[in-house]
Write a protein that binds this DNA or RNA. Structure first.
Lengths: 224, 224
DNA sequence: TCCCATGTGTAGATTAAGCTATAAATATAT
DNA sequence: ATATATTTATAGCTTAATCTACACATGGGA
């Protein structure tokens, strides 16, 4: 069986795999889309896709886009596991703020060993989700379930438990943290504006108004 | 002023600087010595030394060896600071053993930011020395003093406090850890053999015999 | 159906880091 | 002091990852 899991890949190869995964969760990604995602030229992507296919990480047909194989998907999930554990560590133990975390984790994820990742998982108490609420893939490559209903789609009067904030943007995360809207928070939708899509919420005795865009990024599940 | 401290260097460049520092603490290092230290060919070293001189990190005269500039030395000390803080973290917080630590720290030191290093220092309580007893350079590039008398040179009847174990070899470190000979340990030299150089020590009620080689690696200071 | 915009691939160059083979400089030994 | 051995540098090649310029494929619109 080739591509077990212990062959170490270049940072570049790992970033291509992540980009492909991001673009096409379970579909097909185009050369251009990958190029844009990574900020490289399309010819660079063309060349790399050929290489990734030889390595067995993607299915690739010229002019037809690219798709991760099981092996490729596994590598991405292990990478993502490292990334999210590192982010959790930076936020919880090193006092990083949202703006600082992503860049650092992006570099570190390519440098840490599997042992490091596993020990870090222990240190953190084997979290199933990172501080954004993003699910942390398990060592076996499976993903914990994560409630995913957008707050924007919850009816008036319902109670909603936040599970996940679907953005890496530091300003949005900062703003939500300030409001206290974080994974675990319980909200009640008190009003919705029919056209603009504004959502009025109440929690902790406070009332706030969120834009539709923001309310789409807030995921969770309806309670009771 | 070029080469402030924030320009990021390639892993390769950083490893050359470390190798040069290791070989020639305050002298001159030969091309061959650097090549051996890094496990690369001499021509590769020749080429890199030219580059390092252009970058202002070394003084280099062909056929005359190489020497770090102040700027080069500062970079090495910052790198070493990261390395030793990371080692400390791996041992104290992630449950690594001596054999596992070095390799991991060797990779991570090139990937962490200065912010990460400083935050890690805080988390660890600003240690002045790592678990081997190696001094951790300060952020300003200065080095804390470290008692450096070899146990091999201590007279019979004297009390000696271990400060440092001058090896990275996992087997030696393991063996010493098992004996309880670690930075901070207080020993008494009870006997020395005149020819082989064996040193008999007593501590904790136990008595052990150390080879001359091992006793040279154990550094510290005489007490009282 | 043909055509042209967009998307994709090929050719060829560049940069960083390494290598081998060989030549030149320095050091050592008779 | 000369010859030999060692050390160091130069020349030229390789690999990985990137680029630009250009050529070809595909598919939607006239």
């Amino acid at each position: 069986m080739p591509n077990s899991k212990d062959v170490s890949l270049s940072t570049s190869v790992e970033n291509y795999l992540k980009a492909i995964w991001l673009i096409a969760r379970e579909g097909t990604a185009s050369t251009t889309a990958v190029a844009e995602q990574l900020g490289v030229s399309a010819p660079s992507v063309s060349a790399m896709l050929g290489k990734l296919q030889v390595l067995g990480f993607v299915e690739y047909e010229r002019y037809r886009g690219v798709q991760l194989t099981a092996s490729g998907t596994r590598r991405v999930l292990l990478l993502l596991r490292g990334h999210r554990l590192i982010e959790t560590f930076l936020l919880e133990h090193l006092g990083y703020s949202w703006d600082e975390v992503h860049e650092e984790a992006e570099k570190l994820e390519h440098a840490v060993s599997e042992r490091f990742t596993e020990r870090l998982g222990e240190l953190l108490g084997h979290p199933s989700h990172d501080p954004h609420g993003d699910p942390i893939p398990r060592s076996d490559g499976t993903l914990p379930d994560t409630p995913n209903t957008p707050l924007a789609e919850v009816g008036v009067g319902q109670t909603f438990e936040v599970s996940r904030l679907m953005t890496q943007a530091a300003d949005a995360l900062h703003y939500l943290a300030e409001l206290g809207v974080q994974p675990g928070a319980q909200l009640r939708v008190v009003k919705r504006e029919p056209f603009g899509g504004l959502v009025h919420i109440r929690y902790d005795g406070r009332e706030e108004v969120l834009s539709k865009e923001l309310a789409m990024l807030i995921r969770g599940e309806v309670r009771r």
